[in-house]
Nucleic acid binder design. Structure first.
Length: 561
RNA sequence: UGACCCAUGGUGUAAUGGUAACACUGCAGAUUUUGGUUCUGUCAUUCCAGGUUCGAGUCCUGGUGGGUCAACCA
């Protein structure tokens, strides 16, 4: 009778709308789940793609299905193998493996045959109008379009012309193949959409084999169908394309893949448009696609973000159909949460003040045992040399401390982390009045956390032996844009008006000797300063660290910094 | 002056006609050899108007607001 069991076992996590769709499909007997991630290889993947990747692969994994990687390479003008390679690397780095690798260009022949089939059925025709004529003929959102004068060409003539297009008889722009649907359709995309255009351009995979290339709408659904994709998940702006997607599948009578749309990721202070990112790279406002200030996957990796943190972020932002703007702080929270658990702590100062401990013997070096990671006992400890002269961070000393300042000040006492209590006895300044040196005394009995008389201090600061310090270039990154919604701004304006002038600061830091051998990609927490990752350009003779993210700093709020 | 999509705290996401919840952020406190972490507490939410219903965030109608669509881009 005394049943005191916690009957409210953690309610199973609620489903997002895509999971509901899939579960309904499964309930109806469609148990196979095959999704696809279909980037166009015209740029590097960014955090927005990461959401899509996590969704597509995550959904398939959850329901025992698979995911294909398909390159939507139907526009040779913009595409390049450089991008193909980077995309594959980034997807794998995020922790996902695709079942099959495909290219829309592998389907060109099949797509061509289907176009001929549509021509035979009088569902497609070759249009001789200029781009301008086609545009005006399409009407507007409120005015119906008018049929092309070439709309009623005979099947035979269309076949001949289309074959001519393929064989290179015509110049770019001279002719296009159009579907014959409805020039008065309320959905502009259904007003005889273009299927093929002539482009005498080499393709990164098919070379000069083709001079006509299919449009997105004509290639995407059919590619899904060829691969027998069950759930074709894309972003909201493709919603109006769905009727066309379905039209091709119906007219061609091929495997019925279905398209579902979700809201793309938007992040505050972040430009997500591939075009704008490309422009940032091309104008040299950033050093490249992997400039650590970019929102690209490769930049985040270089900056020290982990795949786990990005996946956790994708999980936290959720999936829905309404437009959203995620606070950049959430991404930073995810990376801190992950790094806090796994990063070893090291000491370093970025803006040094020399501290001379006057009652510590000259020439003596003591070893101080430091815990590597208080979150993880298995991380062990290391010994850090302590000498008469050390550096501390300028932030950790104030000549005129406000009320709740816990760190060092004249006459005040503070603990050197894992080391001794020191008291500031004298402040030495240069001619300009700047503090250049602090003369302190230490309490020899304060090792290990205690003190000679049991007194305790609130302030604990990091330090590094001046004699042993290792200099390193430390890059402090801040958001690239000062504006919360840079993606909303017109392309040209973004770069001129809203760039954050303080997005990159480079300083020379003095680090504890254990950091000398750090390898590229390793991330450490420099106590209280944040997480730092060894840059890929770092060498044994020149150490370079990128700041991944700062620690939450409640003192900054108190001090109004 | 069209078609389609969307509308829940500051930001996101849940609630499958039945007590509006979770996370981030903010604020307050405790712990802490990192002003970090951890822990506790706390502020704050259903766009508007009708209708259906015993009961509506949820269903219906109409508004309002936001978004997408008029590339031979994807």
């Amino acid at each position: 009778m005394t049943t005191n069991q916690p009957e409210s076992a953690p309610a199973e996590k609620s489903l997002n709308f895509l999971e509901e769709i899939i579960e309904n499909d499964i309930a109806r007997g469609n148990t196979r789940v095959l999704t696809r991630f279909p980037p166009e290889p015209n740029g590097y993947l960014h955090i927005g793609h990461a959401k899509s990747i996590c969704l597509n692969f995550g959904l398939a994994r959850k329901y025992g299905g698979l995911t294909n990687l398909r390159f939507d390479d139907t526009n040779p003008v913009k595409e390049d193998v450089e991008y193909v390679d980077s995309i594959k690397e980034d997807v794998q780095w995020l922790g996902f493996q695709w079942a099959e690798e495909h290219y829309a260009s592998d389907y060109f022949e099949q797509l061509y045959d289907w176009a001929v089939q549509l021509i035979r059925a009088s569902k497609a025709y070759v249009d001789d109008q200029t781009q301008e004529q086609i545009r005006t003929g399409r009407g507007t959102v409120t005015v119906p379009g008018t049929p092309s004068p070439w709309r009623e060409r005979s099947v035979e003539e269309n076949r001949e012309l289309f074959a001519g297009m393929r064989s290179g008889k015509f110049a770019d722009g001279e002719k296009v193949l159009r579907a014959k649907i409805d020039m008065a359709h309320p959905n502009m995309l259904m007003r005889d959409p273009i299927l093929y255009r002539i482009l005498h351009t080499d393709h990164h995979r098919t070379g000069d084999k083709w001079c006509i290339y299919p449009m997105y709408d004509y290639a995407h659904g059919q590619s899904d169908s060829i691969e027998r994709i069950t759930h074709s998940i894309c972003t909201l702006e493709f919603d109006v394309h769905r009727p066309l997607y379905d039209w091709f599948i119906r007219e061609l009578d091929i495997f019925p893949s279905h398209q579902y749309e979700f809201a793309r990721l938007n992040l505050t202070y972040t430009v997500m448009s591939k075009r704008k990112l490309l422009s940032l790279v091309q104008t040299g406002l950033v050093s490249g696609w992997d400039d650590p200030r970019m929102p690209t996957i490769c930049a985040l990796r270089r900056r020290g973000y982990t795949p786990e943190s990005i996946r956790a972020f994708a999980e936290k932002v959720g999936v829905a159909k309404r437009d959203n703007v995620i606070d950049l702080g959430l991404l930073e929270f995810c990376v801190r949460e992950d790094l806090n658990r796994r990063s070893e702590r090291r000491m370093g100062v970025l803006d040094p003040i020399r501290v001379v401990i006057t009652n510590f013997p000259e020439g003596k070096t003591e070893s101080i045992r430091c815990v590597n990671n208080p979150e993880d006992e298995a991380a062990g400890s290391r010994d850090v040399p302590f000498t008469r002269e050390v550096y501390i961070d300028r932030d950790d000393f104030m000549e005129d401390p406000p009320k709740k300042y816990f760190r060092l000040s004249p006459g005040g006492e503070v603990r050197l982390r894992y080391g001794y209590l020191i008291r500031c006895e004298e402040v030495v300044k240069n001619a300009a009045g700047e503090v250049v040196e602090l003369r302190c005394t230490y309490d020899p009995e304060s090792a290990g956390g205690g003190s000679s008389d049991g007194r305790r201090v609130k302030g604990v600061i990091h330090w590094v032996s001046a004699q042993h310090a290792v200099p390193a270039e430390v890059r402090l990154f801040d958001r690239l844009f000062s504006r919360e919604d840079p993606d909303d701004v017109e392309e040209g304006k973004v770069f001129t008006d809203y760039l954050n002038p303080d997005s990159l600061k480079v300083v020379t830091g003095y680090l504890e000797p254990a950091l000398a051998g750090a390898a590229a990609g390793e991330t450490f927490q420099f106590e209280r300063l944040g997480y730092f990752c060894v840059d890929k350009d770092s060498t044994s003779s020149k150490l370079i660290f990128n700041r991944t993210v700062t620690l939450k700093d409640s003192w900054a709020k108190v001090a109004g910094r």
